[in-house]
Design a protein around this nucleic acid. Sequence first.
DNA 1: ATCGATCATGCAGCTATTTTGCATGGTTAT
DNA 2: ATAACCATGCAAAATAGCTGCATGATCGAT
Lengths: 310, 310
Amino acid sequence: MIDVRLITLRVFSQCGTIGATAELTGYSPSAVSAQLRELQKALGMQLLTKDGRGVRLTATGRFLVAGSDSLIAEWERLRAAALEAGDQVQPHFGIGGFSTAAAQLLAPLAATLRSARPQLEVQVLEADPARCFDLLVAERIDLAVIVAMQADPHREDDPRFEQRVLLDDPLDVIIPADHPLASHEAVTLDELAAEPWITEAAGSTYHALFTAAFTAVGVTPRIAHEAVEWETLIAFVGAGLGVGLLPRLAPLNGAENVVRLRLTGDGRPSRRIIAAVRRGSITSPLIQESLGILQATAHQILTARLEEDA
Amino acid sequence: MIDVRLITLRVFSQCGTIGATAELTGYSPSAVSAQLRELQKALGMQLLTKDGRGVRLTATGRFLVAGSDSLIAEWERLRAAALEAGDQVQPHFGIGGFSTAAAQLLAPLAATLRSARPQLEVQVLEADPARCFDLLVAERIDLAVIVAMQADPHREDDPRFEQRVLLDDPLDVIIPADHPLASHEAVTLDELAAEPWITEAAGSTYHALFTAAFTAVGVTPRIAHEAVEWETLIAFVGAGLGVGLLPRLAPLNGAENVVRLRLTGDGRPSRRIIAAVRRGSITSPLIQESLGILQATAHQILTARLEEDA
DNA sequence: ATCGATCATGCAGCTATTTTGCATGGTTAT
DNA sequence: ATAACCATGCAAAATAGCTGCATGATCGAT
């Protein structure tokens, strides 16, 4: 209900380039450029200024974007309240999430919603956490299931979003099946300090979690190899190239030659899986229902874990 | 910046019919009908329901409209703040007002703005007070100069508007030049109790003010004739048909055979001339400047009166 | 310096939405 | 019963908005 051009401006304020804005919103760069030009004319404000080969927000533009946070939030609140008051349901619902989270939590959610509300048009987008927030701002999705590193700079106080913790997902160690420790129930990071490690590329969110875990116990791991996908990491371990950390939720998919071990001791790394929505929309019926389903799924996962550990 | 369809819904909530909404917004009835249908589909809410030969808002619709008051206000605040912060000025400015107010206050305002800001596109609409509020809601105008009866149900606390008093405009008596009281400086309503009165049509806002003034002094005037325009009323008085009340701001335009007398004593009726804007927009540079000009004009009028009375 | 890559913008042409005008059907008042 | 009023649907028309490509400008690298 807020003018599309203002939304576009907000997306731009995040990604900084017209091209990226176009990609996020689903328009062409020309369309974004035209929209922002129109917006400036309609408001009588200069919002953008040339900066090198790109453009950047003026002070007025930043002011407008910052101020629009509460405007968007209030609209979401109003819409949610009206939907609730009228016992009505929006026609479209977009949800986004990241790989394992998507597979384990989003898929059941989409399935449940689809069967419960055949009228509703559910759209699922797989995207990494950062992009999920962008998609929320761009109003492409209404709910995101993302993983937040424990050490992450908390976005909890971002005026644009509201978040709910769904579950904590600890990292396990995977080691080659023929490794001396393979028969153990659990290990500590200390015991594995001397191993060659396989990790994600430096700069990735997991890499940060990885190093944080080791600095917590005071050892410096030797990074032997880097992988991007869990599949690759598992394969590397299976080939005896080293050991690695794998979130509990990420399935081994019957990979051979590897063993998954629980981590014990201090500094056990874990990632936090949270649901994020645009601020104000959390009371919307559909969001409430979705959060319920997600929490039920999370609970189910936790219960299954307890049984497994028992 | 708020979606046009929501504005249209708000206008509808005031005037109650699609046709009137179309007239106010400048669209055709079909367009309004289509817009509202689209709005309902986009939001997934049923906002309208058939009622006799017309339509009316559902509970959800009323809820949405009521809640949107603060949304609009917040947007206006944001826009005003951004314009102020960026020292920039909107490209279009619409002002509305009623007959005498328009002539005496709006015309100078428009002229001053035009010369001070040649870039600015100023549009003046003459409309009665009730319609001015509608036009404000419809965003056709940004500032209205209206007359409020002293006895009027105060709109001051309307969450949609903000108002500033410009000046109080007392009503004078006009009597035929050959009337025995014509040579007096001032008269009381008591002295004129027995005269045949010429007033506005029953139901008009002035009529209410008229009767209120007489009930205040405890007499019941005899209403001999009714006029719609001041011109007509003055002509009637000039023809000796009776006496009437005329706001100080309304000029006699050199009418013959009539005399304007000050009213003294209790219950002197007066109308209040106020400026109204959409709530939140009052801090906008252009509005601030306009209010300054209006207040200066009002002050000028008051000073001229004092000199005249001296 | 030169070349290539990256980014924003303008334009021509097209698409899609939106609006209009008229006709229809239902409802109220006379 | 008739006339007036009101909303809505439809086809045609107008308009706004988008896309794709070409252009120009900037930055980094060779």
